[in-house]
Simulated assay, not measured.
Amino acid sequence: MPIRPNSSKKLHLIFGDVVKKYGSMVRLENPQMPPVVIVIDPNHIEAFVRATMDNPVRDGFFSLKKIRLEAVDNYFEGKTGLLTENGDEWWRVRSRVQTPMMKPKNVTSYLGQVDEVTIEFVERMASLQEQHGEMPTDFQTELYKWALESVGLVALNRRLGCLASDLTEDSEPMRLIRLVNDLFHNLNLTEYGVHTWRIFPTKPFRTLRDKHNEFLRLADSNIRETEASLLALGTEDRELTLMEKLLMTPGLSRKDVTTLILDMLFAGIDTTSHTMAFTLYLLARHPEAQAKLQEEVDSVLRGHEGPLTERHLAQLSYLKAVIKESLRHVQDKLLLLPFI
């Protein structure tokens, strides 16, 4: 493989070089990891996903799995969650959380609250525009705040205060955001560097372990607070939250649920914010698409007061196309591998 400076942050460029040299399907051998097959043809990717959809093998996160298996007080009880598991253990959890997490009715039940968060974020964007004339260079951090506040609503059923104007750097939301960034940075070093951490704890591995343990403490504290508040409310005359539905699902233990909530916070901050960043960037690069999207939004919401509804979402077909095209464009540029 060609070597680039700071190559752990430029894997997409390395993969791009490999594909240009060898073609649209390339197998890479690494003595420390299972073989990797780069697939970039959409038809091949579709065939791959369909052939493995019932029992996908997503090799990766080896260092994270080791940390969870060796966690203090056996917190994860030998089961490390959907991010790291494969085979029967992956399917045991995935098959049980699929309905509570993917059923449209369960998703739209949070629509009003998430819309409220987004309106606050849009107002914050307007304030930043007024101050700077454009979005500031650290605008990605603002997207992290919006994503954490939105994911927290679904995962923890409460506001975390990420969009407060007086949010300090040592506040809990900012600590969570920094921890997630640190986790992904050190995961990149452990997974794509030399796997000497399998033999002895290297500096990136130790940092990953420390950051993961700190994130776990903060997330577990929030999960326990949510559990206590929901228990005090009782279950009569109200719709159950996602956490309650998961806790009441046969075959899932409390640790299964807390690990899933932990990973929703861990993965949701990063993926949601970057998806939105790419979408906003591409809309800015394509003003004709931006104008068409604005026209659709104005048409669907003309004269409406109050939060978005399920009926509105059903009519926002071009918005859905924009998000899908953004994801397709980013995957095409980064050669996102189907095993990730």
Rank of each mutant, 00 (worst) to 15 (best):
K10Y: 05
M25E: 12
V26W: 14
R27C: 15
I40Q: 05
A47M: 09
T52N: 14
N55S: 13
R58G: 00
F61W: 08
L64N: 07
L69I: 09
N74S: 12
E77C: 14
R92W: 02
R92I: 10
V93N: 06
M101C: 07
M102N: 07
N106F: 10
V107P: 06
T108D: 05
Y110F: 08
T118H: 15
R124D: 04
A126W: 04
S127T: 05
F139A: 15
E142S: 04
E142V: 10
A155T: 00
N157W: 04
G161D: 01
P173D: 07
L179Y: 08
N181K: 10
L187D: 14
L187K: 15
N188E: 01
W197T: 04
I199P: 00
I199F: 04
S221L: 03
A228S: 13
D237C: 09
R238T: 14
K245G: 15
T249H: 08
P250E: 15
K255S: 14
I261Q: 03
I261L: 12
L262N: 02
I269D: 02
L280W: 13
Y281F: 14
L283P: 15
P287W: 01
P287S: 00
Q290Y: 07
A291I: 05
R302E: 05
Q315S: 08
A321H: 11
D332A: 13
L335Y: 13
P338R: 11
